[in-house]
Design a protein around this nucleic acid. Structure first.
Lengths: 334, 334
DNA sequence: CTGAAAGCGCTAACAA
DNA sequence: TTGTTAGCGCTTTCAG
């Protein structure tokens, strides 16, 4: 079931080795012969078996993406960037979602992907995650987003600076009681989220403001979680401004506000983080993160590392940008 | 570079054939021997090479997803459902985006994926697409979303009914001048979009209303496109209600309205189609489509077709549901 | 129930 | 420049 090199070789009247060489564009093939081979391959509609090629060369021709979630807008945007790069090189991308640990078949990524890919893209995984450790031990090229360290190449953003910029923006507007909706507890300094906490504290300290733990709530990086967190904040002694560590959590916060007749910017200022397109519709201020570019940079770097092993590790930092919209307006003069 | 069956066989003191059988859970293996093999495999941290297995069995252990876009929320939600199914069976999913034809390497999907996957999931591809034809000719299992026909198994929704329900809802609210924001021109009856047009016309006819072509604008299924379409509608003799064929286009429409000081529901009624979570935040009425379930059903069906070839083709239809929110309120009594 | 041996389809040395 | 010949690591008859 399938036409093989042999068939092409026979039709073209050459050996299988020549077919292989011609089809992969080796210089050392007589142009006339190459034409014949290409012709025969086309006529037979031949496509080389990737499995056989992989077995023979030891290269899988694909990369693995390890991510804790596939249903966030930031992942979607990064994937779009990744896909753009991989398609151009004919590489394919296998997505491995580490998701909730309550999985049906919790086969760890390094087991499932080890021999199936030539390298890994690791997105937003905590540096002390056992999965990560296992992957690093594989000794394959790895490029990471959202975690730094000398072990691997990485692409990152100035997350601490971005969080500080968001916070400073609120402070400059006159806010003193500033709430925070974070994602998950992050005790690992290598995780972006941790950097956001630091950036927030940086700015608060610079503004001479105390951080009130009662104004800090977790939103699990989801819309629903953001809504719950905002409920908690409003049920207490509410802040006049809220900084959500992701746009999606900010959407949830806005939903909660609206359900109580409160208007973002008028009653409570809200700023998000991510800069998704939809935030413009909600008139949400945010820190714009170039996820598509991040994805493309990650993929490009990994593919280069795969093609040129023993390369220097490199770290790229992409800029973020404060986008001011209607959801952050001056605090009502008390 | 890598431990192989041979290593395991040696350590366990059996043949490679037995290792293979034991590891794949064949009944015909002595329990004691199986234990030894598993033990040896674990100790060596053995993972079978998928390439070798694929070459040997002729099965790739993966499926291909053909989709014209990866950056729509509906795709993201379907993928989440697909991933859930494939992960449970250890299958992996290769995404092939047919994207814009202006691609760098427009290697057609059937060439790129043919021998790499055991079957295809085809999402929202027009039935007369040449890509589709080629894929069908491969003779592999295919399951489609958004297109019907006796050729393949499919999962679909009552799209005509859903569009009619949305339109009827607007009519019942008293609207007479109803605008439409569609995605792309769809001349193929097998495409969902076409069904939405039909559903819209069904309802208009039942309501005794004429369809005004000046009130129909294309929005390319994107937020920005929706915004442009709404601009066009408002610049003419504006409708009192707008039915956008996707939530994302509705978001764009809302953005245009807000930028002109118009409020959805108060000034112009707006209804979308998809039922994404964020629509709740925007208080957007919509037709809820169970994309996660669709994705899971698609994958489950394809995997079953792969495991049991010569199966009957089947067609599943999942329900959609009208969700009424603040963006659709009675028309201002004229 | 287990082992020996023959491939699966391709690529890579090595000769010619 | 091209052909011959071994494998790559696994599965799978076919004997035993």
């Amino acid at each position: 079931m399938g036409v093989t090199v042999k068939d092409v070789a026979r039709l073209a009247g050459v050996s299988t080795a020549t077919v292989s060489r011609a089809l992969r564009g080796f210089e050392s093939v007589d142009p006339e012969i190459r034409r014949q081979v290409l012709d025969a391959a086309n006529r037979l509609n031949y496509v080389a078996s990737p499995a056989a090629a992989a077995l023979s060369t030891g290269r899988a021709g694909s990369i693995g993406i390890i991510t804790p979630y596939t249903d966030r807008l930031s992942f979607q945007r990064m994937f779009t960037g990744i896909e753009r790069e991989t398609r151009a090189t004919g590489t394919d991308a296998l997505i491995y979602c580490t998701g909730d640990p309550s999985d049906t078949h919790p086969v760890p990524p390094h087991k499932r992907l080890a021999r199936r890919v030539d390298g890994f893209l690791v997105l937003s995984l905590s540096a002390d995650s056992p999965d990560l450790q296992q992957i690093l031990q594989l000794g394959m090229p790895v490029t990471m987003f959202g975690s730094m360290g000398p072990w691997t190449s990485s692409v990152s953003i100035d997350d601490r600076g971005g969080a500080a910029a968001a916070t400073e923006h609120l402070i400059e507007l006159g806010h003193r009681r500033i709430g925070v909706i974070y994602g998950r507890e992050a005790h690992d300094p290598a995780v972006l989220e941790y950097q956001r906490h630091l950036g927030f504290r940086d700015a608060m300290a610079r503004g001479g403001l105390a951080v009130d733990d009662a104004l800090i709530a977790g939103g699990d990086f989801t819309l629903a979680g953001g809504a719950r967190a905002m409920t908690r904040l409003l049920d207490g002694d509410p802040p006049t401004a809220v900084f959500a560590f992701s746009d999606e959590m900010a959407y949830g916060a806005i939903q909660t506000m609206r359900s109580r007749g409160l208007e973002p910017g008028r009653d409570v200022a809200v700023i998000g983080y991510d800069g998704h397109e939809i935030s413009g519709v909600l008139d949400l201020s945010t820190i714009a993160v170039p996820y598509e570019r991040i994805g493309a940079a990650l993929a490009a770097k990994l593919l280069a590392d795969i093609d040129h092993p023993g390369q220097e590790r490199s770290a790229t930092e992409l800029p973020v940008e404060l986008v001011v919209r209607g959801s952050t307006r001056p605090a009502p003069s008390v």
